[in-house]
Amino acid sequence: MAEMARPVTEEDIHRYVDGQMDPNRRDAVELHLLDDSTDALTVTAYRHQNRLLRESFDSILEERIPEGILAAAVTVRPRYTRPAWVAAAGIVLFVAGAALGWSVKDLGRENIAVASATPDFKAFAISAHRVYTPEVRHPVEVVAAEEQHLVQWLSKRLGHPVKAPALSPLGFELVGGRLLPAADGQPAAHFMYQDKSMRRLTLYVRGATSSEHTAFRFVREDDTAMFYWIDAPLAYALVGSMEREELHRISTTVYEQLSN
């Protein structure tokens, strides 16, 4: 009876909405709500807010986990455990993924997809070059002044360290860069360079597997030329509107700077 007599407090209202009510107290609160329209409205508003929160964020539970997150987990060196664990971690992740129903299936499909994705790679790199190089106000998302932040950010998203090559000796200065999509929802890094006569070059970088081709390849589409190569774990495409010889010279510099 004492539970019924105690006045209903704000804490009661919260507990009622959040389903954390002492069952002995429930009747008292429900009786109170019949009587007090302000508190009843508060309950409705809180419930609505909780529902909106779930509707806004619950879809994340169904999303595919970005590979970079898991890749980072694999490379962790456990501080207090035996080294054998390190070697096992990759396998464990793989197996755990299978048990959980995501990454293994996805990774498997991915490997096959990436191995044959070179045409997509070309299309993405050339398309990105054509879309962003004519931009006057927003050619990049992060400007060259924040290069360190840019490189850290893109490295994190790609799951591998990426660098913006220094092309000043060849007359091209870094404008900045952005995160872009690659095939299959994977991330790519995009760096833009510009010379004194405002010619722009772009470097498109995405993750690669060792099963992909590694040789330097050249493609030309109308006035856009591109050299691409794979230096696992990353694939690179340098795109510009210039003669093959000049682009090749720059590509060689980029390759030398970025290869391990």
Binding site: I60, L61, E62, E63, I65, I69, L70, A73, A89, V92, L93, V95, A96, G97, A99, L100
Partner: peptide, 9 residues
């Protein structure tokens, strides 16, 4: 490890 990964979503 599996228990950790299960919580990622």
């Amino acid at each position: 490890v599996e228990a950790v990964l299960r919580e990622v979503p």
